[in-house]
Write a protein that binds this DNA or RNA. Structure first.
Length: 495
RNA sequence: GCCAAGGUGGCAGAGUCCGGCCGAACGCAGCGGCCUGCAGAGCCGCCCACCGCCGGUUCAAAUCCGGCCCUUGGCUCCA
């Protein structure tokens, strides 16, 4: 089966056919940098990362763009906080630096570009002018709004009907709009000082509520700043093309953000904006979504520190992007076990390959068949709308075959084990982005030798029957992070 | 209220598009056995599912059709 994806635009799972058969233009709606990133954001990133990696594996040249929204009222509201470095730009850069750290920590492949809204204001102004000229937008008191009644397809992504959309938003905007569903392309400076006051008061109870200068740029309609939706259109067009292949984002963005992107982009260019719209379902805590505004989140940094990138990735990939995922101590523990079983299986295979004495070229059908089956199931899973759960499951089934093979024989099917190792490295490593550690790295070599030394002492104690002492040594090693396991061939350890 | 996606074992989660191989995968937890000084890892076996409810279509339905109940997301900043 070839790659199929579930397209929100049509509501169907469709064969994936990019406009150019060799290239894929991929845009991901990145985050607004006014808070630290949490696991919900990481879920989106990791799934897009794996989509990118799988598309590359299939032979496509992937051009991947992921934006940072650094113009936003919340950022304006945070400006002036000395801990965050001062003005709006400093606040945004502060969070962007954190996010890039998180992304590195998660072992994400870098996107080609991480554009920022603040760097694309001229392009945005161009787009807004085009929309006004074409009659899709109108100016009102220094702001510019998109006229949804002028765009026939409005609502096609979210299946909303214009007549049914009721606006409960900003009263200032409401009075300026011709239709409640119209949305701002450009906002006049100070258009909603109340909103800024609210944030300021909440964050700084003693604040007198002085309106900050805000981030503003000159435009034909006066000083102001871009509306929330227009940025993505501008950046996607600038860095990719007027038509892109895959547009990915959280499912909370379907309406109004993505709907509005489609309207303004297609109205401006007359071309389809994105061929496939993929939406990552939200990460749930027990009863509700994880989100900055609800304050019920676990930060990416904290999760990485506690569990490491591999476990976090395993957790996020253990549910297909298109389904809701639940975050809890239990689901995280499961991910930890899945990852550790996978890595142990990898190490077992590598170790068996390295044990020269036991190598043969005999053929173990169970092992070789399972390698083939794992590759096939992995591929089928990934081609079926990037089903990463199936993909990880296929690898875990291979772990079982490796363990069985090594468990019940004196000599090993060297070629079969090599195939298993290559499969782990290629599918688990290159595609799913796991980082297997076969052995301790260079800097840990000395530490490793010291551990070996302690283990030899322990072995002596064991031979002398001093098991209490031997167990003490094992416990002390455990206390400093070295897990000891006894096997038929002597003790092994891992850090 | 409107739009969308879901409801599968103790947990988690595939399978639903293209009905039968689903007597329901993989994993976690639990139980028994092998191995073992102990522990861990590993292996073998087992327990736990009338696949939300009610009807219908069919030789055959978790999978198709209709109705209902419930959950989640969106309709306001949000991945």
């Amino acid at each position: 089966m070839t790659l199929h994806v579930t397209n929100t635009l049509t509501g169907e799972k469709e064969p994936f056919e990019p406009n150019d058969p060799d290239d894929v233009l991929l845009y991901y709606c990145g985050l607004t940098v006014s808070d630290p990133a949490h696991l919900g954001h990481a879920r989106g990133w990791v799934h897009v990362d794996v989509m990118h990696r799988w598309l590359a594996q299939l032979g496509y040249d992937v051009r991947h763009v992921e934006n940072f929204t650094d113009v936003n009222e919340k950022i304006v509201a945070r400006a002036g906080d000395p801990e965050l470095g001062g003005d709006e730009a400093a606040v945004a850069e502060h969070y962007i630096a954190d996010v890039l750290d998180d992304m590195r920590g998660l072992n994400l492949k870098r996107a080609e570009v991480y554009p920022r809204v603040s760097e694309h204001v001229p392009k945005i102004v161009d787009l807004v002018e085009t929309l006004v000229e074409k009659g899709y937008a109108y100016e009102a008191d220094g702001s510019v709004y998109f006229d949804v009644t002028a765009f026939d397809d409005y609502g096609k992504l979210s299946n909303q009907r214009v007549e049914e959309i009721e606006e409960q938003g900003d009263p200032d905007e409401l009075s300026e709009k011709r239709h409640p569903a119209d949305f701002a392309l450009w906002k006049a400076d100070g258009v909603s000082p109340d909103a800024v006051h609210e944030h300021r008061k909440a964050d700084h109870p003693g604040d007198d509520g002085a309106t900050p200068s805000g981030q503003t740029w000159p435009s034909p309609w006066g000083e102001g700043r871009p509306g929330w939706h227009i940025e993505c259109s501008a950046m996607a067009m600038t860095h990719l093309d007027s038509t892109i292949d895959i547009h990915v984002g959280g499912q909370d963005l379907v309406f109004p953000h993505h709907e509005n992107e489609i309207a303004q982009s297609e109205a401006a260019t007359g071309q389809q904006f994105a061929k496939y719209w993929l939406h990552v379902r939200l990460l749930q805590t027990k009863a509700e979504k994880m989100s900055s505004s609800l304050g019920n989140f676990t930060t990416v940094g904290d999760a990485l520190e506690a569990e490491g990138a591999n476990v976090v990735r395993m957790f996020l990939l253990s549910t297909a992007y298109h389904n809701e995922a639940v975050y809890s101590d239990e689901t995280l523990a499961e991910a930890r076990e899945r990852w550790e079983r996978l890595e142990r299986g990898y190490r077992t295979a590598v170790g068996a390959c390295d044990s020269v004495d036991a190598r043969t070229n005999e053929d173990d059908r169970d092992l070789r068949n399972t390698v083939d089956r794992a590759r096939r199931e992995f591929t089928e899973g990934m081609n079926d709308d990037f089903n990463t759960r199936e993909a990880t499951t296929a690898l875990l089934e291979l772990v079982g075959a490796v363990n069985r093979h090594v468990d019940d024989r004196e000599t090993y099917d060297y070629r079969g084990l090599r195939l298993a190792v290559e499969t782990f490295a290629e599918l688990g490593g290159d595609v799913l982005g796991f980082q297997f550690r076969a052995e301790t790295d260079g800097s840990a070599e000395v530490a490793g030798e010291l551990v070996e030394l302690v283990l030899s002492v322990r072995e002596t104690e064991r031979e002398a029957g001093n098991y209490d002492r031997a167990d003490e040594l094992r416990d002390e090693l455990e206390a400093i992070g070295v897990t000891v396991e006894d096997t038929d061939d002597g003790a092994t350890f891992r850090l």
